[in-house]
């Protein structure tokens, strides 16, 4: 049976997540121009990664679970990459 981490470590993770939320909201107060979205997405991904690894115990799962957890991300990337590429390469010469 898997029995990982302690209550304290869970709460520490939570504090980290709260901190990152503050950072997200804070960062939104400044205008980084084209970097607004990437910055927001990077912070969100760090948060998501922390939730997945610690709250969802992905850290302790086997390789198979990692494959199933990450493959949809790849597909999502494909879906977005191809559709966006299409949308912005339609200029006709």
């Amino acid at each position: 049976m898997d029995n990982h981490g302690s209550y304290k470590s869970l709460i520490n993770i939570w504090i980290l997540l709260m901190f990152l939320t503050v950072v997200t909201v804070g960062a939104a107060q400044f205008d980084f121009g084209a970097w607004n979205v990437p910055i927001a997405l990077i912070i969100a991904s760090v948060k998501a990664g922390v939730v997945a690894l610690h709250f969802m115990h992905l850290k302790h799962e086997d390789g198979l679970t990692w494959v199933f957890a990450s493959y949809p991300l790849f597909l999502l990337f494909l879906l977005i990459a191809f559709t966006v590429t299409d949308m912005f390469s339609r200029v006709v010469n």
């Binding site: 597909l75 494909l78 191809f82 590429t85 299409d86 949308m87 390469s89 339609r90």
Partner: peptide, 21 residues
């Protein structure tokens, strides 16, 4: 098979670049 869906759309108004890919 996840990478080829656009071949149903060669004349749909998809961009030329994507068609070729």
């Amino acid at each position: 098979s996840f990478l080829v869906w656009g071949h149903h759309m060669f004349v749909s108004g998809q961009s030329k670049l994507i068609n070729v890919i």
